[in-house]
Design a binder for these strands. Structure first.
Length: 466
RNA sequence: GGUGCCAUCGCCAAGUGGUAAGGCCGCAGCCUGCAAAGCUGCUAUCCCCAGUUCAAAUCUGGGUGGCACCUCCA
């Protein structure tokens, strides 16, 4: 398997520290608001990565954190007169529900900041003891970036440039402008946590380092995790700081491979609160099937920036539809194990730094060939068996085509409408049988008015929502 | 200003030295009572200039045009 390392900036063979086993850590959401398409993209990319690693027979331990201590959470709790837990529980539940809808499997470990305070304070103490961190008279603890000679090695920034900012910085008790908080004191009586350094709350960067130590890092290993992932914007300062903390408080480097996914833009513009163009996953799911969103968001290479627009989404939906139409044609065929060349090629494509485009091309070619053969007369017992196995493989590795094909095409239709349509179809088929084509065409128009298409097949007449 | 990424058919998008995958849209045809679905066929020499090479979309240099990060952010 090949992986592009976004720190070394090259693609190289993936070799885990322990043969056959992979540890993966991905920065998860801060649960103070609804997840938008960017969160979805990131979760999807690393969901795909774990699937591909597992298909390559790796035993994967995948951790994705939930940040449930954060200034924005506290702010929201104050605004809504709720407890932190009420806010974080609400958004964590929503996040899980929405991830389920787009077929993102749960990580093996989902650590929360609130459950990792001990690991965090221990790490801070180590950093203080080794001279990499210092407490101020105000009760804050900062990481001393000057004490780490490898600082900025991840993002490859230039120290002088960072130093320039120092003069502009307002007066704080920081030694260097680039120093970041490991522990922030809280004195106004609002929500705080206990620590040996006083009342306060942990810094965001610390959280990930501490959780990785607690849940994934192994004694004596050169790297705390094999792969560390997250959004492209996290490289600096978040991952830079994480790496520094781990480097200075333990005897290993944070990650062997770094993977950063590209951003999701909406109609060419960055999603942001200030622009008011955030596209929330929950809203997208009202309009589109979760699997269509999954297919669309995964259809472009994970490192590229993604420009969300409805035209391309429709194009993706049509592509997914083809998988489901073949599933319909094969409905009832018993699934049996059947390794095929297609499956080998598909995995090979995905194992090359998740080359989804190539994988999709292979799928389209497989679908065409299968349809072509099924169009000709004959039983095609082997073809059906192999195709079923291929579709099952696509479901497993890519998560496409996991639904009942008939239900998939009825997305968003209520039961009353469905039975009305079914009744009209029966009438139309009677008219067709009587060769009363004027009547049958009129009935078809009536059915099409529901926003569906009709198709007559040897197996019967089916409709699909447009 | 610093660091880095990108530029391939109308649209989306693979391909990183050997003569341009795939999808959407479009056109023609097969199938169909007619449609729809499915199938078949057709449609680009890769932003510009120069260089390296037997050979470049792919490497080098320059130019032009986009974009990201440098502040919380997936």
């Amino acid at each position: 398997m090949q992986i592009y390392d976004s720190v070394q900036k090259n693609k190289r063979e993936f070799i885990p520290q322990e043969e056959g086993k992979v540890s993966l850590y991905v920065c998860g959401p801060t649960v103070y608001d609804d997840a938008h398409l960017g969160h979805a993209k990131s979760a999807l990319v690393f969901d795909l990565l774990t699937r591909v690693l597992r298909a390559n027979a790796y035993e994967v331990t995948y951790a994705r954190n939930i940040t449930d201590i954060d200034d924005k959470i506290i702010k929201k709790a104050h605004e809504q007169n709720k407890s932190i837990k009420e806010i974080t529980d609400f958004y964590t539940l929503a996040f899980h529900k929405e991830m389920d809808a787009i077929g993102v499997s749960r990580p093996d470990i989902e650590p929360k900041a609130t459950e990792s305070l001990e690991a965090m304070t221990q790490m801070i103490q180590k950093l203080i003891d080794t001279g990499h961190a210092y407490a101020t008279t105000e009760g804050d603890v900062y990481f001393d970036t000057k004490s780490d000679t490898a600082y900025l090695s991840l993002s490859k920034r230039i120290q002088e440039e960072e130093d320039k900012k120092e003069r502009i910085e307002s007066s704080t008790q920081k030694k260097n402008a680039a120093d970041f908080a490991l522990w922030k004191s809280v004195k106004d009586g609002s929500i705080t946590f206990h620590s040996p350094f006083g009342e306060g709350r942990p810094g965001w960067h610390l959280e990930c380092s501490a959780m990785i130590e607690k849940h994934l890092a192994k004694e004596g290993a050169a790297f705390a995790v094999d792969i560390h992932g997250g959004g492209a914007d996290l490289l600096f300062p978040h991952h830079e700081n994480e790496a520094a903390q781990t480097r200075c408080s333990t005897n290993h480097t944070l990650a062997n491979y770094w993977m950063h996914n590209g951003f999701v833009n909406i109609d060419g513009e960055k999603m942001s609160k200030s622009l008011g163009n955030s596209f929330f996953l929950k809203d997208a799911l009202k309009i589109y099937d979760g699997e269509v969103l999954r297919f669309y968001l995964l259809s472009t290479h994970y490192r590229s920036n993604f420009n969300f627009n409805t035209q391309d989404l429709e194009s993706s939906k049509k592509r997914l539809d083809k998988i489901y139409r073949l599933k319909k044609r094969l409905f009832g065929v018993v699934l049996m194990e059947s390794p095929t060349e297609f499956q080998t090629k598909l995995l090979s494509a995905l194992s090359d730094d998740l080359n989804v485009s190539l994988a999709l091309a292979l799928i389209d070619e497989m679908l065409s060939k299968a349809n072509e053969t099924l169009d000709t007369a004959g039983k095609h017992k082997e073809l059906k068996r192999d195709t079923m196995a291929n579709l099952a493989y696509i479901e497993k590795v890519l998560g496409f085509g996991v639904k009942n094909p008939f239900e998939y095409f009825q997305f968003g239709m209520d039961e009353t409408t469905k039975s009305e349509i079914d009744a009209l179809i029966i009438k139309r088929n009677e008219a067709k049988k009587a060769k009363d084509f004027a009547a049958s065409d009129a009935l078809r128009d009536a059915i099409l008015a529901f926003g569906v298409t009709l198709m007559d097949t040897p197996e019967g007449t089916f409709w699909e929502k447009i």
